[in-house]
Amino acid sequence: MKGNINWFKYSSPQTFYPLAGTLAPWFGALAAVFGAAGLYIGFFVAPTDYQQGEAYRIIFIHVPAAWMSMFLYLVMAFWAGAGLMFNTRLSGMMASALAPTGALFTFIALWTGSLWGKPMWGTYWVWDARLTSELILLFLYFGFMALQAAIDDARRADRAGAVLALVGVVNVPVIYFSVQWWNTLHQGASVSLTKAPTMAATMFAGMIVMAFGFWFYSIAVTLLRVRCIVLERERNSEWVTEYARDFR
């Protein structure tokens, strides 16, 4: 690559703070556009399912939320690992900022799935491998947040949380492959990287558009949250003092 791009420039909270502030509204707007389009396709364009009738429309929320719950955990673990490796302050802040959104999507996936499960399967909850491992994911997010909140020193909290986040990574492939490895009540994947989706094209389109909407939403709220964390943790630094002075 030509020239020397300084990849570490934006790893400083001071330079990342304004960048995050510039980017967040754009991702927020994208999230609104994709969310609205996805819901429109989901409710008005996609056809009724031949078996489940209208109840299948849960997939436009449930499946993207479940995808995001796993994906955000991987991103969180990546930042936690990067923080351990490079000792950068911002990495730990990113991991902390991602956790609540990840927990939110995990909860949405479990909650919507449960509401769908009662009429379709005949039960709100079963202890099969897919449902149980997704519940463990929720507890991993909660555990990560609780552990960080329990340690006063931010850098030590980051390191302890990072170890927990990295240990929990083992759970993500278990969730994803649980429906292949074991007999589960939860159905297999309709969409995967290795084969064509086993669903009508408009249904698939609605799901993908919603997934992008959730993705942009996650980026937007994480950037906003990391800005708060930056200000909180750097409050004694000179640049935050100066920044605050500008507001007077």
Binding site: T48, D49, Y50, Q51, G188, M199, A200
Partner: peptide
């Protein structure tokens, strides 16, 4: 004592199923 339906991963409109 309990009967649960196990759904498959196929989603399609009724016309396609027909």
């Amino acid at each position: 004592s309990e009967v649960l339906a196990k759904h498959d991963e196929n989603y399609m409109p009724p016309e396609s199923a027909q």
